[in-house]
Design a protein around this nucleic acid. Structure first.
Length: 276
DNA sequence: AGGTCGACCTGGCAGC
DNA sequence: TGCTGCCAGGTCGACC
């Protein structure tokens, strides 16, 4: 599900509703979800250790970094969570398919669902030592991003620009949906190597990264399949997609059919007339 | 060094 | 109806 706008929406929702609450009870329905971030599984079942580590701590702050969600707990512990493809954090009395359920001091219940189990969570004592966070590129919504982006993009990268946008080490938070949308708005062919894009085009690209992500945050994310916010509601940016998931349908600008190609095993959507 | 590809999982859906 | 194959918003490690 989650790219930057979706994780940002969930973080904002949870911030409003559970800051200051104490974790009273944790039930792990599927131990595969509790794992070293984000994929490697502990040799033995880590769930009891996770529960012990977070129980009775207060949630003091919630932040997003890239596509990761971080719960700051009292006593210097952090829950580090990643939603993978199908993860959901939902506040609700019950959630029949929840993989992890957390009861808070007010009686609210926070559930983590994840159909494909690509996401998960772990508890850490030092964020600075987490390889995923250390490796993240600049945040598109942070001040000074455009200048940093320009500098990174000018380092002679030969990869197709679509792969570049998806690389979390280069830029944090962009995923498959927004990469296609950003490139359409910038008028750049997703297959074009980064080092063949002109400086003025790169400036437009940087601005479109910021514009598309900001707009998607305002629309509370894109609910194409599974994504729901922390109240279980859909986002609305799917109503504004110009190319993603529209293969064969007419381009909103020139009317020619939107193309779908596969790059690095993932679908890319674009207009071969409007994007050069 | 830097880029590409399969593996990790489950479920929905189109086509036969 | 039921089977098969394809598809899905992410990330990492093996491989070139």
């Amino acid at each position: 599900m989650p790219e930057l706008p979706e994780v940002e929406t969930i973080a904002a929702d949870l911030r409003q509703r559970i800051i200051g609450e104490k974790i009273q009870e944790v039930v792990v329905h599927d131990a595969r979800l509790i794992r070293d971030f984000p994929r490697s599984v502990f040799a033995d079942c880590p769930a009891p250790g996770f529960i012990r580590a977070v129980k009775n701590r207060e949630i003091q702050k919630i932040e997003r970094q890239g596509k990761a969600l971080i719960f700051y707990l009292s006593g210097g512990k952090y829950i580090l969570a990643h939603l993978g493809m199908t993860g959901q954090w939902v506040l609700a009395d019950s959630a029949p398919r929840a993989k992890v359920s957390i009861t808070l001091s007010s009686g609210q219940r926070l559930h983590y669902n994840d159909q494909r189990i690509f996401g998960g969570m772990t508890v850490v004592a030092d964020l600075a030592k987490v390889p995923y966070l250390r490796g993240l590129g600049p945040e598109p919504l942070s001040p000074g991003f455009l200048r940093v982006f320009q500098a990174i993009a000018m380092t002679g990268i030969k990869a197709p620009v679509k792969s570049f946008l998806l690389d979390q080490h280069k830029i944090a938070g962009i995923g498959n949906i927004y990469a296609s949308e950003i490139l359409f708005r910038a008028g750049i062919d997703p297959r074009c190597p980064v080092n063949q894009i002109t400086e003025p085009q790169l400036r437009i690209l940087g601005k479109q990264i910021v514009a598309v992500l900001k707009e998607a945050v305002c629309q509370r994310g894109t609910s194409k399949r599974d994504y729901l916010d922390a109240s279980g509601r859909q986002g609305s940016f799917q109503n504004y997609l110009r190319v993603y998931g529209r293969a064969g349908k007419p381009c909103s600008v020139c009317g020619k059919p939107i193309q779908r190609v596969v790059q690095a095993g993932r679908s890319t959507f674009f207009c071969s007339i409007c994007q050069k």
